[in-house]
Design a protein around this nucleic acid. Structure first.
Length: 424
RNA sequence: AGAGAGAUGGCUGAGCGGUUGAAAGCGGCGGUCUUGAAAACCGUUGUGGCCUCACGGUCACCGGGGGUUCGAAUCCCUCUCUCUCUGCCA
């Protein structure tokens, strides 16, 4: 969430930034007004509380001296009732403001290119070139079927459309990819974690996924729990309500999990095979760092994600998202897309975001900052997340790119020690 | 799932409903002593909101949320979590 203080002090700047994101400014105006009234209430109720505290002490003294205090007590009863009703009103304001705040996105960084839609995203790098195939390429669904390594029909039988069944060397390849990516990110300084995939509402709120995106989440009503859409949620919550040490920053984690997405509202889009599934596998990178270093850390994370694709020898590009397209919690975002020969288009396989203090403010992840005068200040960390990487669309590109004329798949060199086989 | 015990400041651990924002110890920081260090001694040591240019003032916070009361860390309800015992289970 945004800092209410920033909204209070610079509402115009915030509004301007939100307009860049194609957001309306009504919510901010509403928050601004409610906050003003809220402050007035705080003054009123705190003045009364001050009085009550003073008189209450007097009553204590009188009681000790065995004096009669009934008059003062009666007086304070009135004051207390007054406080109670003011506090109730105040609580309503708090709730209203907080609810509105939950729907206001992070503000874009100054470096983010302005745009009105995803069409205005900026391609900043293309790595490698398209291979020339001297035969007609098969798509991943066909390859998976012919080689009997992917079974979307049976996946659908088990769980409905959008669920994949990996078989034999397909399952082995997936497992190899995950292990390979975890090892690589470990070398990049990320500590591996294996987290829960079912999380509480509180954890989802801390990650700013709920309530705004509640419809996109699998939710278990009986236990009030959500299936995570990304390991970002569980890893971020490792340090919820904690104060980190400055010398430990940046704190970096990588973790593999299944990811679950309802993909509500995207029916009929990219329905084929792995292009859009309800459950996929992903190695996630999370970085808790100081505000000073978050944008440089972001560049490093981008290179860590790209490193996987480099080693796998895949053709990919990096896109910098424009103001209209960056995610809700992000102030800046890069997407990495791999080339699909069969689909003849780019597929998003990673997204690296700097969420600045947007999530840490709600999740209360802070660090003690050493100041020059030997004092310390507790400050919110910046939280970055990046996929390193998601396997489903990666698998599409991997299978297609490495297919042979005979319809087999050559396993990339770097994966062979993980798979134990070099051809499918 | 059933029975019981518990949750207090960075940690350990006190706390008859009224000078308790919270004893004591440890740790941390500053100082004295020392060639230096240790020990010893002295001092200091939570977070957040609001007002103030500032000094400072004030409010809130003893797992979360309610309640009783003039007044709650302390009493009541509820939720969560941890531990012990029983049951079930990968």
């Amino acid at each position: 969430m945004l800092d209410i203080k920033t909204i209070r002090e610079n509402p115009e700047i915030i509004k301007e930034k939100l307009i860049q994101r194609n957001e309306n400014t009504e919510t901010i105006e509403k928050i601004y007004e409610l906050d003003k009234r809220r402050l007035e209430l705080i003054h009123k109720t705190e003045t009364l509380k001050e009085e009550r505290n003073k008189v209450t002490d007097e009553i204590a003294v009188m009681k000790r001296n065995k004096e009669d205090a009934t008059e003062r007590i009666a007086e304070m009863k009135k004051v207390s009732d007054n406080i109670k009703s003011l506090d109730e009103e105040l609580k309503k304001y708090d709730g209203d403001i907080d609810l509105l705040l939950k729907y206001v996105p992070n503000i874009p960084h100054d470096s983010v290119p302005f745009g009105k839609s995803e069409k205005d995203n900026v391609e900043i790098k293309v790595s490698g070139e398209k291979k020339g195939f001297d035969f007609k390429v098969k798509d991943h669904v066909q390859l998976g079927k012919d080689l009997d390594i992917l079974d979307f029909e049976r996946g659908a039988k088990i769980s409905g459309s959008g669920f994949a069944l990996y078989k034999g060397k397909g399952a082995g390849l997936e497992r190899a990819l995950i292990n390979f990516m975890l090892d690589e990110q470990g070398k990049n300084g990320y500590r591996e974690v294996l987290t829960p995939v079912l999380v509480t509402r509180e954890s989802m709120e801390a990650a700013e996924k709920v309530p705004k995106f509640e419809e996109d989440m699998y939710y278990m009503e009986k236990d009030n729990m959500f299936a995570i859409p990304t390991a970002e949620v569980s890893i971020l919550n490792i340090h919820r309500n904690e104060i980190l040490k400055q010398e430990d920053l940046p704190v970096k984690y990588c973790g593999f999990t299944n990811c679950f997405r309802r993909e509500a509202g995207s029916y009929g889009k990219d329905t084929k095979g792995f292009l859009r599934v309800h459950q996929f596998n992903k190695v996630e990178l999370i970085n808790f760092c100081s505000p000073e270093e978050s944008y440089s850390e972001m560049e490093k994370m981008l290179s860590h994600a790209c490193g996987i694709l480099d080693k796998l020898g895949l053709h990919y590009r990096i896109i910098e998202l424009c103001t209209a397209d960056i995610g809700f919690a992000a102030s800046k975002c890069y997407d990495i897309e791999v080339w699909s020969y069969a689909e003849d288009k780019w597929l998003e396989t990673s997204s690296v975001s700097n969420c600045t203090d947007f999530q840490s403010r709600r999740a209360m992840v802070r660090y003690k900052k050493q100041l020059e005068n030997n004092k310390t200040k507790t400050e919110f960390v910046h939280i970055l997340n990046g996929s390193g990487l998601a396997t489903s669309r990666l698998m599409v590109a991997l299978l297609e790119s490495n297919q042979t004329k005979e319809g087999n798949i050559n396993v990339p060199d770097v994966l062979r020690r993980y798979t134990g086989f070099d051809i499918i």
